[in-house]
Nucleic acid binder design. Structure first.
Lengths: 119, 119
DNA sequence: CTGTATCCTACTAGATACTG
DNA sequence: CAGTATCTAGTAGGATACAG
């Protein structure tokens, strides 16, 4: 689960604590409404993540009630991840923030990496 | 400025990187649209923060173009902080997330602190 | 295929004391 | 009033190897 610095002073504080992990935004992005992905698929979708970090972040999201983990006892093993209702509501609430990021990413990146001459 | 792990894979990633500091949600909460606060006022508004952390987070938000810092060369010194246009847009985009947090904070806190018997 | 276990580093954030 | 400087502890995150 997230850092769990709680009790929170405002809802925003709590929400950021849940979403704030390094790979969580990308996980939620990959696991959009209705989508169900296996561990390996998620690993590919969240490019650059290590197995350890992916598991860790998924476990935290699971503990926070955001994602559902379905285990199929087969050989080879198969585990599917999907959003819970709470997770879908969270994802919905994140849409405006994602749009803001898309719109202003360039400016922010420009500030962070003044070297880039974007073509 | 934020961690700056950039380049980002999705807008959400960039946005969370900007808002993800420990005290930033509370700072943005305090500095709602049109509000202008002095350093000391912010310090009181963001309860629990140290001077060092408040300055640090404010500088990052300033570097990311979210807050504006206005210095009045007086005695005693006076510095006012307010949201930039970009900051106000960000705050607007954060409203749904804040509402989600308010609505579900109790559940999340319950998971994080299973001890609490809320009355 | 889906994870665990261990070790390690860098960074975040807190405490404290000092300054223009 | 509004910061700075320094020191330190805790932790988030990464590399690697191994396991059911």
């Amino acid at each position: 689960m997230a850092k769990g610095k709680g009790p929170y002073s405002c809802g925003l504080d709590a929400a950021v604590d849940v979403v704030g992990g390094k790979w969580k935004p990308m996980i939620l992005w990959a696991l959009y409404a209705g989508e169900t992905l296996r561990f390996g698929e998620l690993r590919r979708a969240v490019s650059g993540v290590s197995e350890k970090m992916l598991i860790q972040q998924l476990r935290e999201l699971e503990a926070d009630g955001i994602v559902h983990r379905e285990v199929y006892r087969e050989v080879p093993p198969k585990v599917e991840y999907s959003l819970t209702d709470l997770g879908e509501q969270l994802n919905t609430a994140l849409i405006p923030l994602g749009l803001w990021g898309e719109r202003h990413m360039d400016e922010v990146v420009a500030r962070k990496h003044p070297h880039h001459t974007p073509a």
